[in-house]
């Protein structure tokens, strides 16, 4: 395993640069329609890619993972705050793991 603290330093420098460059150089916002659209869609892609299929495998049981994923989607659709969706998902994964 490479040095964790060097990894953290790399992360911190890159993330800070992403945050600070516009504050240093741009005073009128971003003009390019393509770039603005691209940046608008990025979070949805990244979060979706990170979540699926990781949520299925994270608990160690595929069946519990699929059930937890379904519950998270349903609660989010019905109207759920972040903590509520997370609590429902964890609880279902826990309960289903008792039976499987």
């Amino acid at each position: 395993m490479k040095n964790v603290y060097i990894h953290i330093l790399v992360m911190a420098v890159v993330t800070y640069l992403v945050r600070v460059i516009p504050l240093i150089f741009f005073h009128g916002g971003i003009r390019s329609a393509f770039f603005r659209s691209f940046l608008h869609y990025v979070p949805y892609v990244t979060l979706s890619v990170m979540t699926f299929p990781a949520i299925i495998t994270a608990s160690g049981s595929y069946v519990c993972g699929v059930i937890g994923f379904a519950v998270a989607v349903i609660v989010s659709l019905v109207k759920g705050s972040l903590p509520l969706v997370a609590a429902c998902c964890c609880l279902t994964v826990y309960i289903s793991s008792l039976f499987i």
Partner: peptide, 14 residues
């Protein structure tokens, strides 16, 4: 194990 899905569930909620 059950708590390991929490962060992903929050991403779904987003």
């Amino acid at each position: 194990s059950a708590l390991s899905v929490a962060l992903y569930a929050m991403f779904i909620a987003v």
